[in-house]
Amino acid sequence: MKKNPIWKFVNGIGMLLLICIFAMPFVWMISTSFKTLGETMTFPPKWIPNQLLWENFSKAWNSGPFLKYLMNSTIVSVGILILQFATIIPAAYAFARYRFKGSNFFFGVTMVTLMIPSQLIFLPVFLQMSSWGLLDTLWALILPFASSAFGIFLLRQSFKQVPEELLEAARLDQASEWKIIMKIMVPMAKPVLITFGMFSFIAHWNDYFWPLVMTTTDASRTLPLGITKLREVDGGVAWNILMAGNLILVIPILFIFFFAQRQIIRAFVYTGVK
């Protein structure tokens, strides 16, 4: 059945409006990162700078040990992702394909943790990291996120869609449970794993609160904390330098999204969450 042309027009205008609303802050950040400080203060706002000031990026980069911040952010985000994959894959497989005593209870407890914000539990975790002597180290930023209730839930839903007959055939061929996970379950859940991996990486790459409470020196601080120091450049809030620093923070995320977007679409369109 053909759609009404008027409805198609209204729908198109609505989608264009939503795109503009969500894209405007990002476009403004890019524009501001190339402006002079004076151009950031003009009213009405000036979207296109008179001259592209590339030195804003070098000034932001040289305002602190940004290479160290970048390395720390990469180590923390990738380290968390590796540990999460190592924990959520077997946990999701157990919840999806086995029925053991208390399985529903333990899965319910796992889901309850989704409702507890990290800000609520940071104090006991902080004390635990302190007792282990891990404060102001990268381990204090990695270990508290070694697993993910959301990842277990998402992957469990994907594993439940794999036909039981396929697993029985593998067991008849003397395949171990670990081989079934790695050779059958993980490849079939690849779009979901990539989607979760991207969400997790972005969340911890942009995390500000946890590094703020767990670190005290530049040796273990990450990019979001480094960006806040740009407020002190040139003796005041230099919005052009601050936006240049934020663009440096965002660029890796854009690359990840660009390469992962097809898998994200597959995860939600073809496999879905049922």
Rank of each mutant, 00 (worst) to 15 (best):
S33F: 01
K3N: 14
K68E: 12
I142E: 10
Q263E: 13
S158C: 11
A23L: 15
G14E: 04
S33K: 01
I180S: 07
L193P: 08
T222N: 09
H204I: 06
L138Y: 07
S58T: 15
I6H: 13
Q128I: 07
F85R: 01
Y69D: 09
R262W: 07
V237W: 09
T40Y: 03
K59I: 13
A146E: 08
Q157H: 06
E55S: 14
F57V: 04
I251K: 02
A267Y: 02
M115Q: 04
L223S: 06
L155G: 06
G102Q: 05
K8A: 14
A91K: 02
P124K: 04
I180N: 10
E164H: 11
N11H: 12
F196S: 07
T228W: 03
Q119E: 14
T228F: 09
F150C: 04
I152V: 15
I194H: 09
T271F: 11
S200W: 02
M214E: 10
V273G: 05
R231H: 06
I180W: 04
P252C: 09
F26G: 00
P44E: 05
Y208V: 11
M24V: 10
F95P: 01
S148K: 01
I184H: 06
V273D: 00
N240V: 03
F122M: 13
G245S: 05
M24A: 14
F66S: 13
E168G: 06
G235Q: 08
E39V: 05
L18V: 12
P191F: 03
I75P: 04
V10M: 15
L155M: 11
T228P: 00
L53G: 00
S147G: 12
A23I: 07
F145D: 08
A219Y: 01
L123P: 00
F258T: 13
K160M: 15
P191E: 11
K46D: 05
L166T: 12
Q157F: 02
F255Q: 06
L155P: 04
I21A: 05
N246A: 13
K179R: 15
T36P: 05
S158G: 07
Y93P: 01
K179F: 05
I116G: 05
S77N: 10
S130R: 15
A267G: 08
I19F: 14
T271D: 05
K2D: 14
G64A: 15
P124D: 09
R156T: 10
A86C: 09
V237P: 12
I241P: 04
R231C: 00
Y93G: 02
E39W: 04
R171E: 14
S131C: 00
F66E: 10
